[in-house]
Design a protein around this nucleic acid. Structure first.
Lengths: 235, 235
DNA sequence: CGCCGTATTGAGCGCTCTCAACGAGGGTGG
DNA sequence: CCACCCTCGTTGAGAGCGCTCAATACGGCG
C-alpha cells in the first residue's frame, strides 16, 4: 500500500515545491527585499506581464494564485505552472538576459511584492547565499521540467490529467488538509493538461464514475488520491 | 523571406546552444578543471550513468556525442537532449542534492573529462564566476525546457519531427557547413520526437516526398531548412 | 427575464499507435 | 567466401484516442 507521504514525494518530481525562501536568507538580504519591495495588487483575470515583454523586475507572491502560460502562434495556450503563496519568480529572464518566455495572469486576486530589476541585480551580485539558493532551486526545477517533457511526450490525457489533479491538489491544499478544492476553470485546466475543453470534460466524467473525483459546480475535489496516483503511471 | 540567421535564432529557444564555457573562466578555475579532470573513454552504445544513480561528479564532453534519456515504468524511452563537444553536464543533481534524473549513453565513441563531486563542490563555492555562469546557463535552459513542454503538449508529430530535425541539424553540423548529416538511429529519433518508429518512418517518407529531407541509407540530410522551419510552426 | 460566458454532450473524422509481415544490411561462423 | 542470423528499418491494416464542429444546458448578472 502506497502511503500519502510516498505519493507526495513522487509528486515533487513534477512540480515546484520550494523555490527560493526569503526567510532563510541572511538578515541583510531580507531587509533589502523589504526595503526595495513595492506592494502590488493584481485582480483576478488581470495579466501581470506578457510573453515577449522586457523583464522589469522580480515578484514575490504574498497571497492569491497565478498561472504561467505560453501562447502559440495558432492561438493555443499551454499553462505551465501555478504559483502560490511564497513563490518567487521573474528572475530567470533577468539572469539570462532574455525577454519573458511566458505570460503571467491572476487566477484570484493577488498581492505581490515587486523588486526592481536593478535592485535585484545589485542584490544577486552581492549575496552569495541568494545566488546559491537560486542555483539550487533552478537545478531542482530543471529535473521537474524534464520529467514534465517526458510526461507530455509519452502519456495520454488520462495520465496527464491524473497528475495535473495531484499537482493542483498540492497547490490548492491548505497546510493541514490533505484534500483541496480545485477551482480552476475548465479552460485553464484543459490548457494545463494539454487537451481540449471537451476532452477534459469527458475525462472528468470518466474519473467521476470511477469515484476518483467529485465535482461541486465547477469545483473539483479529489476522492481517491491513491488510485489517481496509480493511474498517472509515474513510478 | 526568412533568413537562416533568423531560423538559427528561433531555434535557440528549443535547444541548449551554449552552456558553461570553461575557456571563459579565470585562469585559476581553468587550471582546477585541468588538474582535477580525469580523462574517460566511453564507447558507442555504452552507458555513462543511469537514471536514479548517485551523481559522482560532473563531465565535460571533449569529443563524440551523447544522448540523455529517461526511461518510464512501462519501458518507453524519451530522449531529452543530445550533448556535443564542449557540453558540461551532470552538475545539476549535485547542486540540488538529487539522484540522476536521466540516463546518459554514447551515440558515438566519446572522450570525456570527469571532475569528482567533491572537487566540483569545492570549486563552485570558491568561484563566483563559475557559479554565475551556471546560474545564467540554467536560467536560459529553463526557457528552453518550457518551450519544449508547450511543443510536446500542443503539437503533433509532424511539427515535433520538423523541429527535432532542425535541432539535430545544429548538433551534427560542423562549424562551417550549414547542413549536416544526421546519423541517429530511427529508434533514437523516434524517442526524441516522442513517437513510434513506425510513425517516424512514415513521417520521413512524407518529408522526403515534400523534398524537405533526403536519406542516404540511414542518414538524413536536410534539403529545405526554411520549409521545415515553417512546418514546425514555431514563431 | 433574457443574455452571455462557461460547461456538457454528441457525432464524425483524422492522426497516431499497435500488431504483423517483410526487406535490407552487417556481422559471424562454417 | 558464402550462408545464416540478428538487428534495424519499412510498409500495411486496423483500432482507438483525442480533436473539431455543433447543439444543448447551465448559471451568474444586469
Amino acid at each position: 500500500m502506497i502511503s500519502k507521504e510516498q505519493i507526495k514525494n513522487s509528486l515533487k518530481r513534477f512540480h515546484f515545491y520550494s523555490g527560493i525562501q526569503i526567510e532563510v536568507l541572511p538578515a541583510s538580504e531580507r531587509e533589502a527585499f523589504k526595503k526595495f519591495g513595492k506592494k502590488i495588487i493584481l485582480l483576478r483575470r488581470k495579466i501581470l506581464f506578457k510573453q515577449g515583454s522586457f523583464p522589469t523586475g522580480i515578484f514575490v507572491l504574498k497571497s492569491g494564485k497565478l498561472k504561467v502560460y505560453q501562447t502559440n502562434s495558432d492561438g493555443s495556450i499551454q499553462v505551465l505552472f501555478i504559483y502560490t503563496v511564497g513563490d518567487v519568480f521573474g528572475y530567470r529572464p533577468i539572469l539570462s538576459n532574455d525577454y519573458q518566455p511566458a505570460s503571467v495572469a491572476a487566477l484570484e486576486d493577488c498581492e505581490l511584492l515587486f523588486i526592481d530589476r536593478k535592485n535585484f541585480i545589485n542584490l544577486i551580485v552581492k549575496s552569495i547565499s541568494l545566488s546559491n539558493q537560486l542555483l539550487i532551486s533552478l537545478s531542482r526545477e530543471f529535473t521537474v521540467l524534464t520529467n514534465r517533457i517526458t510526461l507530455f511526450a509519452q502519456r495520454g490525457i488520462k495520465e496527464r490529467f491524473a497528475i495535473v489533479l495531484l499537482i493542483l491538489n498540492e497547490k490548492y491544499r491548505s497546510e493541514k488538509e490533505s484534500i483541496s478544492e480545485i477551482t480552476l476553470s475548465r479552460t485553464d485546466l484543459a490548457n494545463f493538461v494539454g487537451t481540449s475543453v471537451e476532452s477534459l470534460s469527458r475525462m472528468i466524467n470518466v474519473f467521476k464514475t470511477k469515484k476518483l473525483i467529485k465535482t461541486e459546480g465547477k469545483k473539483i475535489v479529489i476522492e481517491n488520491i491513491r488510485e489517481l496516483y496509480l493511474l498517472s503511471a509515474i513510478d
